[in-house]
Amino acid sequence: MMSGFSRLGALGLLTAGALFSATACGDGSGVSEVGATSDGKPEVVAAFYPLQWLTEQVGGSDVQVTGLTAPGVEPHDLELGIQQVTDLQKAALTVYVKGVQPAVDDAVDQEKSFDAGTAVTTIPAGGHEGEGEEEHGHDEVGYDPHIWLDPSRMATVAGKLGERLAAADAAHAQAYRDRAATTAATLTALDQEFSKGLATCRSRTLVTAHEAFGYLADRYKLKQVGITLDPETEPSPARLSEVAKVARAEGVTTIFTEALVSPKVAEVLANQVGARTAVLDPLESKPSGDYVSAMRDNLKTLRAALGCTA
């Protein structure tokens, strides 16, 4: 939950920031003085890691990218301090996904933000009754916000982000479009790796710590069964019993855990059904490598767990 300071303080700072922005003069480049560094580069804030990676790829050396969520921080629980709210107000553009971080949803300036979720076809939140949906905003937006776990959707977002940056900084418009096309091609190739690697598997059921992998499952014809909807909610005994029943019926051999979430519940479930555990990274925080290498690590983990042979 966001603290009283985060919500009320953010609103006060946003009001002051709006007044400052209204008096700032443009320099003819499409970026206001408030949203540019001293050398004229647009300042872009990315809400959490996958969006930061994408923005850095598309923006290149023409922008200054700031990540709002520090490595190792669970982004769903982000609370905004004074400096973070200031960064949001100064930015020429904020890149986020509505429904992931309520604090960011409340604080962004809609006229200077890009909601990546609006760039793609979304799927409904898969949750189960009473398991934290309202707490993290999924119920409010009405869809699963974890779009970055499908490389093909990320490719689409890359193109839309390139257009948004081109509109904000006309002097470098073609460079943004070119980098967006290159990034989209990289993501399309990654998508093809996943399609081939997950084409022929003994099992197609993912039992995950929380329901972050709906888009991956949707894209590659897998079935996601989440222990909880969000990473901070304890599952009810009834939910654990339901997931255990599915795991036994479908011969699940691996229960997937996450680096930023305690594995204890997943380990208990794995012991109950005679399975092992393995880490499947939802990429909500910066991995040891980058987005592409982390997704490839996920593919290796999935192939081993699901018994894929192609």
Rank of each mutant, 00 (worst) to 15 (best):
L269S: 03
L269V: 08
P287M: 13
A259V: 13
V292T: 15
L280I: 15
L280Q: 14
S293L: 12
A266M: 06
R276E: 12
S293P: 05
L269T: 09
V292N: 10
L269G: 02
K264V: 12
S285M: 08
L280P: 01
A275P: 00
L260M: 07
S293E: 11
L269R: 01
V265P: 03
A259E: 07
V279Q: 11
A278E: 13
T277G: 11
S262G: 02
V261R: 01
N271S: 13
A278W: 09
P287Y: 06
S293D: 14
N271G: 13
A294I: 08
M295F: 07
L283P: 02
D290F: 12
A278K: 11
V265R: 03
A278P: 04
K264D: 12
E284C: 04
V268K: 08
M295A: 07
A266W: 01
G274S: 09
T277S: 06
S288C: 13
A259N: 04
V273K: 11
E267K: 06
V265F: 03
V268G: 07
L283N: 03
V268Q: 10
L283R: 05
V268F: 03
A294Q: 10
A278N: 09
Q272N: 10
P263H: 13
L260N: 04
A270C: 03
G289M: 14
A275Q: 01
P282T: 03
L260D: 02
V279W: 03
P287A: 15
V292R: 05
D281W: 00
A259D: 05
V265I: 13
D281Q: 06
D281F: 01
K264M: 09
V279M: 12
V279D: 07
L280F: 11
A278S: 11
M295Y: 09
K264L: 09
V265T: 15
V279Y: 07
Q272I: 06
L280C: 07
G274T: 09
N271I: 05
N271H: 09
V265S: 05
K286P: 00
S293A: 15
Q272T: 12
P282C: 11
N271T: 12
D290G: 15
K264Y: 07
V265M: 09
A270F: 00
L283E: 02
P282L: 04
S285R: 01
P287S: 15
D290A: 15
E258G: 01
N271Y: 05
S285I: 03
P263T: 03
S262V: 06
A278D: 12
Y291C: 08
E258C: 02
E284T: 14
E284K: 01
P263V: 01
P287D: 12
E267H: 04
S293Q: 14
V279N: 13
T277H: 08
T277N: 06
M295S: 10
V268W: 04
P282K: 01
G289N: 14
V292L: 14
L283V: 12
D290W: 14
V292Q: 10
V279F: 07
L260I: 10
D290V: 15
E258R: 07
S293I: 15
K286N: 03
G274R: 12
